[in-house]
């Protein structure tokens, strides 16, 4: 008996719609995405109903993590370099050209200035994290207020910059208050608190 031969269908299927869709999505995500620089601190921000969008540039940011460690960052490569040089002069810490370059390219940091050269030389993120974890953040005490100087020199280098505080939900109020007091000492009376957009529950 003759067997019925099934028509052998071609194994290739038309992928055009799938490709169309894939590229549509690629385009969408390419346009919408913005790369976030890796922060030295993990910060879980509180949420608020405020809808003021913070700018990506011309901003100086003080981060306070859940253990009340303080981090600092300021935007603009030239600004960062200038600030680092001035801080180096003041605290008698010399930075090599590589360290300055590294500093101008990285994001926030939270080590005392004495540890900064070692931090900048660390290279790999793991080593940096190790140094970071050992330090207590940027010193705020009134005797050696390094944060005051970071803010001060950043203000001199870039007077138009906005100042923002990005605190963790669990950061204690006295720590935040101390940061605010430092800002006020430096005549910064207007600043932003960075928050997430409120989602549902509150309304």
């Amino acid at each position: 008996m003759p067997k019925i031969k099934m028509p052998k269908s071609s194994p290739s299927i038309d992928m055009t719609p799938m490709v169309d869709l894939a590229f549509l999505l690629v385009t969408f995500f390419m346009l919408i995405s913005q790369f976030r620089a890796e922060e030295a601190a993990v910060i879980d921000m509180p949420s608020s109903v405020s809808d003021l969008v913070i700018p990506d540039k011309d901003i100086m940011m003080i981060l306070v993590d859940k253990d009340d460690k303080v981090f600092f960052t300021v935007t603009g490569q030239d600004t960062r370099r200038n600030v680092l040089e001035k801080m180096g002069e003041k605290y008698k810490v010399t930075f090599t050209e590589e360290q300055k370059k590294e500093f101008s390219n990285m994001s926030s940091f939270g080590v005392p200035i004495r540890q900064l050269p070692a931090y900048l030389d660390a290279g790999s993120p793991e080593k940096k994290k190790a140094i970071q974890d050992q330090s207590k953040g940027i010193p705020l005490d009134s005797v050696a207020c390094e944060l005051c100087d970071w803010v001060f020199y950043s203000r001199i280098g870039a007077p138009k910059y906005r100042v923002a505080i990005k605190g963790d939900q669990a950061a204690s109020y006295p720590a935040i208050r101390r940061v605010m007091d430092i800002l006020q000492e430096k005549k910064v009376n207007k600043f932003n608190l960075i928050t997430n957009m409120e989602t549902g529950s509150a309304e």
Binding site: A22, L25, V26, F29, M30, I32, S33, Q34, F35, R36, M45, S48, S50, D51, L52, V53, I54, A164, K166, M180, L183, Q184, N189, K190, F191, N192, L193, I194, T195, N196, M197
Partner: peptide, 22 residues
């Protein structure tokens, strides 16, 4: 590319509240 962009993108931009201290 699709996977890459999906993973790296951040949708919600952080918002800020402004506070004026006396």
């Amino acid at each position: 590319l699709l996977t890459f962009f999906i993973l790296t993108t951040t949708f919600s931009k952080p918002k800020a509240m402004e506070i004026n201290m006396p």
